[in-house]
């Protein structure tokens, strides 16, 4: 059986194709302002890689903020359900899943079967999401992919007073004017967002093993900051932004038609 999982994120649409429990292809497209077209593109991309046509898909499930616009009249599931299912599939021992995307952050307590016990979400404020690091990278005039490695070169922790991304941007500019090394500012940026995310995770309770997913998990500076904040080693799966799409594809496979 072939199922498709589509994660309609704020910034990217991610697609995972699954055949009998094995990932056979993945696709990704910028969400942009035409998310229906973007989703169709990401799906076509994945189908092309798998050498399949759309009718080869037995069932589709969609998650993410824009899931109403997903193609193929899919089964819908929440981001929380999808994240827990996907994370536990990859890392059996996962009990706390932290998912940080472009505009949302969430912490999920899960069972060994990927069933959600409790969760907390930040969706109202950019301070706990990828949008925060993006804004700070702009202020630092550093490409967002480089801000993580840059922060690892920092030699000192400096505090950031601002929580709000708008105020933090001005703070970064003042720090630059005061000739604070960029690496130290980058570290302060990651410490700030890690602090927000971890305090949210503490509300649901942290059980080992902790797995970090979502696009922001690719940022090594953020991962390092979360580990320091938690005082724990955490696991980041190889393609952290596809985990929720995988969860959706698994959900589609589990549902009997």
């Amino acid at each position: 059986m072939v199922t498709a999982g589509i994660d309609m994120g704020a910034k990217w649409v991610k697609v995972v194709l699954l055949r009998d429990g094995e990932v056979i292809a993945r696709g990704k497209a910028l969400t942009g302002f035409e998310q229906k077209a973007s989703a169709a593109k990401a799906l076509a991309d994945a189908l092309g890689q798998a050498g399949l046509s759309a009718d080869a898909i037995d069932r589709t499930a969609a998650t993410g903020a824009g899931r109403k616009d997903a193609p193929g009249s899919p089964i819908e599931l929440t981001e929380v359900t999808a994240a827990a299912l996907g994370a536990v599939q990859i890392e059996r021992s996962a009990r706390t899943v932290i998912d940080v995307g472009a505009e949302e952050g969430r912490a999920i307590k899960t069972t060994d079967a990927g069933k959600v016990v409790d969760f907390a979400v930040n969706e109202k404020c950019a301070a706990g999401s990828g949008a925060f690091t993006e804004a700070m990278a702009r202020a630092l005039e550093t490409p967002v992919e480089e801000i993580g490695p840059l922060s690892l070169q920092s030699s000192q922790a400096i505090p950031m007073n601002a929580q709000c991304a708008v105020f933090a941007e001005s703070e970064v500019v003042s720090l630059l004017h005061a000739r604070t090394p960029k690496a130290d500012i980058a570290r302060a940026v990651h410490d700030a967002i890690a602090n927000r995310i971890v305090s949210m995770a503490r509300k649901v309770g942290i059980n080992e093993h902790v797995v970090l997913i979502g696009g922001v998990a690719r940022n090594v500076g953020f991962v390092d900051a979360v580990e320091r904040e938690l005082g724990l080693k955490i696991t980041v799966p190889p393609d952290p932004e596809f985990v929720s799409a995988l969860g959706a594809a698994l959900h589609a496979a589990e549902r009997r038609g």
Binding site: F33, E103, K124, A126, A131, F132, A135, C164, A165, V166
Partner: peptide, 18 residues
């Protein structure tokens, strides 16, 4: 719909494009 200025900005950009 967004309270956050950062998100309101992306929302506004979308409205302008529309």
């Amino acid at each position: 719909s967004s309270t956050c200025v950062v998100f309101a900005k992306s929302e506004a950009t979308g409205l302008l494009r529309r």
